[in-house]
Write a protein that binds this DNA or RNA. Structure first.
Lengths: 225, 225
DNA sequence: GGCGGACCTAAGGGAACGCTGAGAGAACGT
DNA sequence: ACGTTCTCTCAGCGTTCCCTTAGGTCCGCC
């Protein structure tokens, strides 16, 4: 589960990162609006924590731009309590939730979890492909009635593939979507993890849902194999 | 902004109509699946609210049929909470959002607005020529219902030809379009690959879609052979 | 019919690609 | 602190793909 934190106050940003990583998230940081927008466009984030006051490009604009792109990733906006932007504005431009500084760390995490549970508004809460179901909220995967236990990485890979079920997902997209975006080039982690998944999700059931499309990437069979 | 509400419970239907009209929408009503499908095909609706349980033709089937027609109008499905169809099914057949009865009116409007804001999802960019279809997203090719497995190069060549179906594509264009643009001169790769394609796409089906235009190039028959 | 050029086909070497098992190191839980 | 689990790298292997070569075939034209 990868998050993007866009926050210019270095100390706060670092604190958030450490805290969220402790909660089990992967966290990317951006320190201004331009960076943030760029990362948000490239990466597959589960949610974005976005400060309103930012150098170069306000969080306000970043959010607006993302929505205009058709990117409906959940966004949690942060604002100084006496900021020139008020809550109504934030929600108007498509933010999903809103916190006023100063806020307690616990409150932030709670709001974030609520956001993630709701998921991106244009996405079903539970992903399915035939008799295979994946529930991001409860972090569970089932083939029929049989529960399958996956590690964090395995889960993330499967989730991304299922979000694009029926489509080919290039390895590069899996790398940037599941691993840190600034990942050192040559590696075959993706192949390895698809292999792991096959052993857990397909082989015990005689299925073939994780398909290799040679030279293009991997595809989750729309019917679950 | 025109909406279609397909709902057999008269009281609920009327309530929805009144409520939505108050929000400024124009609302058409249908009370069974056949009516609904008919109206949906004729009218230009911004979105459709579709009950699952309907006389004559279930909402399930209506949705399926519309998608099959290539109609990607946003659909919000409604189901009784203990209905035989569950959320996964609804989303499976191409609904965009899903509500379980009973729902609050406010929630319905919120979901509807979210749907409208998103707009109709891009219709899948599938290339067709007669009974031959090529889907770049899923990287699949079908002749009728029969799936055909192609290599990357074969796929690229066929895609390029199908993008210009009915037109003659010179060999030089195939070379620069599919192979590295600065390709070392004399070679007959194109002929070889057209040959491969014919064996996979035409011969098994007794078709002749990949036509040679002597001295000019190749042409994908507009009707798929 | 014979000719030349354009096109087609079969076959094979080499490279690219993806899969797997083993194992080192980090993270985690007890 | 210890064992377990997880994550990732590496190297080897088999498969598949790609392009080339070398002929054969078709077509239009004289």
């Amino acid at each position: 589960m990868k998050l993007l934190v866009v926050e210019d106050e270095v100390r706060l940003a670092q604190a958030l990162r450490r805290g969220l990583q402790a909660e089990g998230f992967t966290v990317d940081l951006a320190h201004d609006g331009e960076d943030g927008l760029h990362l948000a466009r490239e990466g597959e984030y589960a949610a974005i924590v976005l400060d309103v006051m930012l150098p170069h490009l306000s969080g306000y604009r970043v959010c607006q731009q993302l929505r205009k792109d058709g990117n409906w990733v959940p966004i949690l906006m942060l604002s100084a309590k006496d900021g020139e932007y008020d809550e109504a504005d934030g929600l108007d431009i498509g933010a999903d939730d809103y916190l006023t500084k100063p806020f307690s760390y616990v409150v932030l995490v709670a709001h974030l979890r609520a956001l993630l549970r709701r998921g991106a508004p244009d996405r079903p809460a539970v992903l399915t492909a035939g008799d295979l179901t994946l529930d991001p909220a409860s972090h569970t995967v089932q083939r029929g009635d049989q529960e399958i236990s996956l590690t964090r990485r395995e889960f993330a890979v499967l989730e991304l593939l299922m979000r694009h079920r029926g489509e080919v997902v290039p390895k590069s997209q899996l790398l940037t979507g599941v691993w840190d975006s600034n990942y050192s080039g040559a590696s075959n982690v993706v192949e390895v993890y698809v292999g792991y998944l096959r052993r857990k999700v397909d082989e015990p059931f005689g299925k073939n849902s994780l398909q290799t499309v040679r030279g293009a990437g991997y595809r989750m069979a729309a019917d679950g194999g």
